[in-house]
């Protein structure tokens, strides 16, 4: 039995096509401007002098990020009306019939997973496509990825399969929330901070 569902993201394989983002929007019928899964384009660097030669030294990779269904969901802990709750299998849900729309959880989540839905006037977030998962299928984002850069499953199983990494630049310190996330880093991620990399597509995410 699954005790904590989790996502795996292979940054080395992601081409930034945003098929995951669009599949999520399509399946959940999200209005324009509302994204439960976002693809962040991380870019930085410039020219570097090696000996007598100037060579380009840039970093560029993508991060596909949705709710990480954290083991310590600070969104739920901060919610004053207990509208955010965690199922036995670890999936974190928003009860839109109880949410007062104060949007405090948006500040509390370091992954900015909680997004305001102007249609329901409540916050909203990835629900792990629980109906599909309960029926034995994959979440829409995982199914849509042409590179197989996304996977899902029990956190312990994913860690056995892919390792323990759960943070790359510029993701927050994972000890804040214990995200149910496993990442295979892109080769540029280790030197992104020293190359002053930044998210290049804020307007989009």
């Amino acid at each position: 039995m699954v005790t904590q569902y989790a996502f795996f993201f292979n940054a080395a394989a992601c081409s930034g096509c945003k098929a995951c983002q669009m599949a999520c929007k399509d399946r959940n019928n999200l209005e324009p401007g509302l994204l439960w899964r976002r693809v962040y384009e991380v870019a930085g660097g410039g020219w570097e002098k090696k000996g007598e030669v100037w060579v380009p030294s840039v970093v560029a990779y993508n991060i596909s990020m949705a709710c990480n269904h954290c083991e310590k969901p600070v969104c739920g802990l901060s919610c004053p009306v207990k509208a955010i709750w965690k199922r036995e299998d670890g999936i974190v849900f928003v009860d839109t019939d109880r949410c007062i729309g104060c949007r405090y959880c948006e500040w509390a989540c370091p992954y900015t997973a909680l997004r305001f839905n102007a249609t329901t006037n409540t916050v909203s977030k990835c629900d792990f496509c629980f109906e599909a998962v309960d029926a034995g299928g994959p979440p829409a984002c995982v199914a849509a990825c042409p590179q197989r850069a996304l996977d899902f499953g029990d956190l312990a199983e994913l860690r056995k399969k892919y390792g323990e990494t759960r943070q790359i630049f510029p993701l927050p310190d994972p000890s804040l929330t214990d995200p149910a996330l496993v990442i295979k880093p892109h080769r540029d991620a280790a030197r992104a901070a020293e190359r002053a990399a930044e998210v290049a597509n804020w307007e989009e995410v």
């Binding site: 901060s78 919610c79 004053p80 009306v81 207990k82 007062i100 729309g101 104060c102 006037n121 409540t122």
Partner: peptide, 18 residues
Amino acid sequence: HHPFRARYVLSNLRSSWL
């Protein structure tokens, strides 16, 4: 955005500073 639901606002005294 749902002021009438504010009656639930004392539900999470255990962990919510709000």
